[in-house]
């Protein structure tokens, strides 16, 4: 008998497309959270595939910490322009200015947790009832237990102890007024899958993922890029290194890796032999053992 089979990447793609179409049909006002990082670039590609030849039926939204890599913002604007998509930007700086959020103190104040405030305000402002995120279960242990359709109460909170069981391909997006869902179509993807998909689809990604020379400072074992948002402490100094970034987050908490990888294939080889997870270089996750879970309970991505 002739055997029908799909490669694992095609299966993951099909699953993600199915989920995006479910969201577009089950919800009234979805939004795709877009950071300009590789996962959200893959998400945009999948959204195009899910609705082609129609336009993606929801806007993209960037929660801007103001601590971005300039390359990421340039890339974001170019991609949005090419797509003809609607982009909403809401900034943490505005939340700080209006007194809703308070800047952290210290030598590298992170705006990471402040994003939650801006994000929840924006969801309320636009009355979004579903927000797509590019998070994956392999990224972090709290995420490993999160559902594809992740319910948020009226305060935007996640309750990990009382999640709806998710069986087969039946996704329950029913909710009360004021509640919303976070939806993660890439739940079953790994870092390697994302890179392979970028290679297979020939997707453009920001230059900071490739090797380049940059002034960095070594702090707590992490290589942090020179930026106006970091204050050097005593005996610290910037030095040039040949590096690249495995994830794209805030400049204040995203650690670089030393690397010569100049192409997607080279990155894939590097990922294949990597000894630490991609979030191993993220200061925001290192704050406590349950840092991610605590942030998520409050409404983080």
């Amino acid at each position: 008998m002739y055997s029908y089979s799909l490669t694992h990447l095609k299966q993951l793609e099909s699953e993600a497309i199915f989920i995006m179409r479910e969201v577009a049909s089950q919800f009234e006002k979805p939004v795709l959270l877009f950071s300009g990082g590789k996962d959200s670039i893959v998400m945009v590609r999948l959204a195009q595939k899910a609705f082609w030849p129609a336009k993606v039926p929801f806007p993209l939204m960037h929660i801007d910490t103001g601590h971005n890599f300039p390359e990421t913002i340039e890339f974001r604007d170019r991609l949005v322009n090419e797509l003809g998509a609607d982009l909403i930007v809401r900034s943490v700086q505005d939340s700080i200015n209006s007194g809703k959020a308070v800047e952290e103190k210290g030598p590298n104040p992170s705006r990471n947790s402040l994003q939650t405030i801006t994000l929840l305000d924006a969801i309320e402002e636009f009355k979004f009832d579903a927000a797509f995120g590019g998070a994956r279960r392999d990224e972090e242990k709290a995420r490993a237990k999160e559902r594809f359709f992740s319910h948020r109460d009226e305060f935007g909170q996640w309750n990990p102890r009382n999640q709806r069981p998710e069986l087969w391909n039946l996704f329950n997006g029913k909710k009360q007024v004021g509640e919303h869902f976070r939806v993660f179509p890439l739940s079953n993807w790994t870092e390697m899958d994302v890179w392979q998909y970028i290679a297979m689809e020939n997707l453009a990604i920001p230059q900071i993922y490739f090797t380049h020379q940059r002034e960095i400072v070594v702090r707590d074992g992490m290589l942090l890029a020179k930026s106006p948002f970091i204050t050097l402490m005593k005996e610290e100094a910037y030095e040039p290194r040949q590096i690249r970034f495995r994830t794209v987050g805030d400049m204040t908490c995203t650690g670089a890796v030393e690397s010569d990888a100049a192409s997607i294939d080279a990155i894939i080889q590097e990922v294949a032999s990597a000894k630490v997870t991609e979030r191993g270089g993220r200061a925001d996750d290192k704050r406590s053992e349950a840092a991610m879970e605590d942030r998520k309970k409050q409404g983080y991505f």
Partner: peptide, 14 residues
């Protein structure tokens, strides 16, 4: 070698 590894990965099943 890289090419071969990539192709193999693209042909994996689940």
């Amino acid at each position: 070698l890289d090419q071969a590894a990539t192709e193999q990965y693209l042909n994996m099943d689940l």
